[in-house]
């Protein structure tokens, strides 16, 4: 009797488990479609993510016969690995991974660039501490991550989070020093074969960015939900930046070249590179 009861309970539990698993299967994005698939890798809360959440880009691309699938990644290294293996077609990266990977011999091309984020990037120090200018930093410990240090260098939304939650103040921003732009890159092979896709993608992404500039409060709400951060933080982030996405200009190539040259001098990359070669002629 007790055994029968146990068997029934066991089978019920197993059925429930399987039912949830089947439900889970339909939650995954393995949906098949007759449209041409375009896979875009992004990182949380970046321009592509804003575009993804707004949903307009997907609709417009669909109208042109493309199915856009977004894949989220934790960092640029993972995005690059995925790009190399062909798992994704476009990758939204920061300014350094393209440089590092070009130096490592990867045949990548920049297909688009975002606006400068120099106002959200900078050096943070403890509010009320005795560091009030860059000169005071002499002899202090500076890090790229928060720990037992006197100052640290970071970017939004971390900068804003630290300012709002952790009693930090922005000692100096990257204004005039580094633009810290977003880039979209692809492999040369893909970019060559899919110029139309690139053109459409960039155009719609740019349109979404224009929308973002005129709807900052909505963007802030969106980011607050995505990042599970308070609106206070995301407001600060959104307010001090502008959104854009367009083709790479020669000025931007120059910026990237500067980064590459500094990296080479510092020994971060082993090879001198010409950023201009990482464009589709």
């Amino acid at each position: 009797m007790k055994r029968k009861l146990t068997i029934t309970a066991f089978l019920l539990a197993l059925t429930a488990w399987l039912a949830v698993a089947v439900y889970g299967y339909f939650q995954t994005d393995v949906a098949t479609t007759s449209l041409t698939k375009v896979v875009v890798g992004y990182q949380k809360a970046d321009p592509v993510d804003i575009s993804r959440q707004r949903g307009e880009l997907v609709k417009k691309m669909k109208a042109k016969g493309y199915k856009v699938v977004f894949k989220e990644f934790q960092d640029g290294a993972a995005l690059m690995t995925a790009l190399k293996s062909g798992s994704i077609d476009y990758a939204r990266l920061g300014d350094t991974p393209p440089v590092v990977n070009q130096a490592a011999g990867m045949d990548l091309v920049y297909v688009g660039a975002g606006a400068s984020k120099e106002n959200g990037t900078g050096v943070l120090v403890k509010k009320g501490g005795n560091i009030n200018s860059l000169a005071d930093l002499k002899g202090k410990r500076i890090a790229y991550a928060k720990g037992k240090v006197d100052a640290w260098v970071t970017w939004d939304p971390y900068t804003a989070t630290a300012q709002v939650n952790q009693n930090a103040k922005l000692l100096i921003t990257a204004k005039g020093l580094a633009k810290n732009r977003d880039f979209v890159v692809a492999t040369r092979k893909y970019a060559k074969e899919n110029t139309t896709v690139t053109k459409l993608f960039l155009q719609y992404l740019g349109e979404d960015m224009t929308w973002a500039n005129s709807h900052k409060s909505e963007v802030s709400t969106m980011l607050s939900k995505t990042l599970h951060l308070s609106k206070k933080i995301t407001n600060l982030t959104v307010k001090r930046r502008s959104f854009a996405f367009s083709a790479v200009t020669s000025a931007i190539v120059k910026e990237q070249q500067t980064i590459a040259d500094v990296f080479y001098q510092e020994g971060i990359i082993k090879k001198q590179i010409n950023v201009g070669k990482a464009l589709l002629q």
């Binding site: 939650q27 995954t28 949380k44 989220e72 990644f73 934790q74 993972a78 989070t161 990042l227 599970h228």
Partner: peptide, 24 residues
């Protein structure tokens, strides 16, 4: 799921960790 994913519990955790969302 933490490698690259936009779904799953592992994603939820690593994502929350990135933004110090200790609740999640």
């Amino acid at each position: 799921e933490t490698i690259s994913s936009n779904s799953g519990i592992g994603y939820m955790a690593s994502n929350a960790q990135e933004f110090m969302d200790m609740d999640t």
